[in-house]
Computed example of a mutant assay.
Amino acid sequence: MSNHSPVSNESLAPSAPESEPQHDRSRILRSVKGPAQFLSFWVAIALPFVHLPLLAQGLGDPAVTLAFVVLLTANVFALYLGHGYNQH
């Protein structure tokens, strides 16, 4: 005697295509993380050299002050993103 069920086992299992986009997204994020940290680390190293001419010129001009603040903000953001670069 065979036991035939009206519901197949395939309908009870979670479908694989639904979990695949999540897997692809995490794989893409992992592949982008290393280069993003590398670039952010070196941008954070280089940006202070751009600050020097602005500071030498003085921050009396509002445009120079704005440029300095924008570059300083970018430097802090780059430091945050690149802080884990090359750590094992």
Rank of each mutant, 00 (worst) to 15 (best):
L55S: 00
K33A: 15
L81M: 12
F68P: 03
A46E: 01
V50R: 01
L29T: 03
L54V: 01
H51Y: 01
L52G: 01
S26H: 11
P6E: 09
A46H: 05
R30I: 03
P17M: 04
A56L: 15
Q57S: 09
I28S: 11
L72D: 03
M1L: 10
R25F: 13
V7M: 04
I45N: 01
V7C: 02
H23C: 04
T73M: 08
L59V: 04
A16K: 09
A78V: 06
A46G: 12
T65I: 00
D61L: 07
L12Q: 11
R30K: 13
Q22D: 06
S5C: 09
A36P: 00
A44M: 05
L12E: 12
V43D: 01
N75V: 02
A56K: 10
F49M: 06
L81K: 10
L39P: 02
M1R: 06
A44I: 05
S8C: 08
P21V: 05
G60W: 05
H51P: 00
W42Q: 03
H88S: 13
A67N: 08
F38S: 07
L29K: 12
R25A: 15
P14Q: 06
V32A: 13
Y80G: 12
V76W: 10
F41W: 13
L54A: 00
P62T: 01
S8D: 14
L81I: 08
R25K: 11
H83N: 09
M1I: 07
L79Q: 11
P14L: 14
P14M: 09
A63P: 00
T73W: 06
T73E: 01
A44Q: 04
D61I: 03
P14A: 10
D61C: 04
L66N: 01
S2Y: 09
I28K: 12
G58C: 03
A67Q: 12
L81W: 13
F77M: 12
S8M: 09
R30L: 14
L12H: 05
T73L: 14
A63C: 02
N9Y: 06
R27C: 07
E10P: 00
S26I: 12
E18F: 15
E18M: 10
E18L: 14
L55P: 00
L79K: 10
D61M: 01
V7R: 06
F41H: 15
Q57T: 09
L72H: 07
H23G: 03
G58W: 02
G58F: 03
P48T: 02
V50M: 08
L81T: 07
H83S: 06
N9R: 08
A78G: 04
H4G: 07
V50P: 00
L12Y: 08
A36N: 06
Q22M: 11
L12G: 07
F38G: 04
Q57P: 00
V32S: 08
V32C: 14
L29E: 14
Q37V: 02
V69F: 04
H4N: 13
S40Y: 09
L72Q: 07
